[in-house]
């Protein structure tokens, strides 16, 4: 167990160093959510006036939506990195050392979690500058970050699994393009579920993006219902654990095709 922890640490360090050496990539990862905050914040500003929305500042409503959408969209591409490491032979190099398979996958998760957390905090900061308020305070913000990280884990593990199984960039690109917008708009990211048609609301209930958003928004409220935060957050955590377990199992399938 300690060996796995140490190995996870070394493998995570490798990935974080690589990330830190790609400043352009980091910059793009931050500019994109800023654009979303600005665009959607202005485009939908008057949505709050709709009956059923409940008034208030739209930016305050939108900020967690952009945090979660950004976590989704940046983690969906994890499989591209996995594919590159397969093609370059790096994964095979690790697989013939004593390193545990789980340490390799845990390092992916840890790197994604850390970068998602940083990205989320920066979006919160930008939104606060723009006038959004976070009534739940630091605890609420921390839970928003946890929800974003868990959602990111679900989709980075899924993307890694698909990458290792299908071994084709096109599949990952296709899947992501197909999923990103429906997953985002079939959730209360930009608009409360109460304003959606009934069939959409039912889809939204089953959408992990909604679980992340609903528990985060609840935690950010001035008087949170902790039961609802825990219930949706727990569901999300269970899904994340299952997806990581699945991606570790995929090594076995991968090794059959090596």
């Amino acid at each position: 167990m300690t060996a796995i922890a140490a190995q996870t640490w070394w493998m995570t360090q490798r990935r974080l160093t690589a990330l830190a050496r790609q400043p352009w990539f980091l910059l793009i990862m931050l500019i994109q959510p800023a654009i979303w905050l600005f665009l959607f914040g202005n485009l939908f500003r008057r949505i709050v006036e709709l009956p059923g929305f409940g008034g208030g500042s739209y930016l305050t409503y939108l900020a967690p939506g952009v945090v979660v959408m950004s976590a989704l969209s940046s983690n969906m591409w994890a499989g591209m990195g996995a594919l590159e490491e397969i093609e370059r032979g790096t994964l095979n190099r690790f697989l013939v050392t004593p390193v545990a398979r789980s340490a390799i996958m845990n390092a992916n998760v840890a790197e994604q979690a850390l970068s998602t957390a940083v990205q989320s905090l920066i979006i919160v900061g930008l939104a606060a500058l723009g006038g959004a308020s976070f009534a739940g305070g630091p605890a609420g913000i921390a839970l928003l970050v946890v929800a974003a990280v868990l959602l990111g884990t679900v989709f980075s593990a899924l993307s890694n699994t698909v990458g290792m199984l299908v071994r084709q960039r096109e599949t990952i690109i296709g899947l992501n393009t197909m999923l990103l917008l429906p997953l985002t708009f079939l959730s209360p990211a930009f608009m409360p579920a109460a304003l959606m048609p009934g069939w959409m609301r039912r889809l939204s209930d089953a959408n992990p993006v909604s679980w992340a958003l609903l528990s985060a928004r609840e935690a950010l409220a001035s008087d949170p219902d902790w039961g609802s935060v825990a219930w949706r957050g727990g569901l999300l955590a269970a899904l994340a654990a299952a997806m990581v377990a699945l991606s570790i199992r995929t090594f076995r399938t991968y090794q059959k095709s090596v």
Binding site: A6, M11, T17, A18, R21, F94, V96, T97, P98
Partner: peptide, 30 residues
Amino acid sequence: RRVIGVVAQKSGSDPVATGRENLVLQGRLY
């Protein structure tokens, strides 16, 4: 795995890491 060293047909070194970093990580894994 503990007793073998492997140089595969494809170079598996990490292109953004330095030669020394590649070696140090590899040693850590053992």
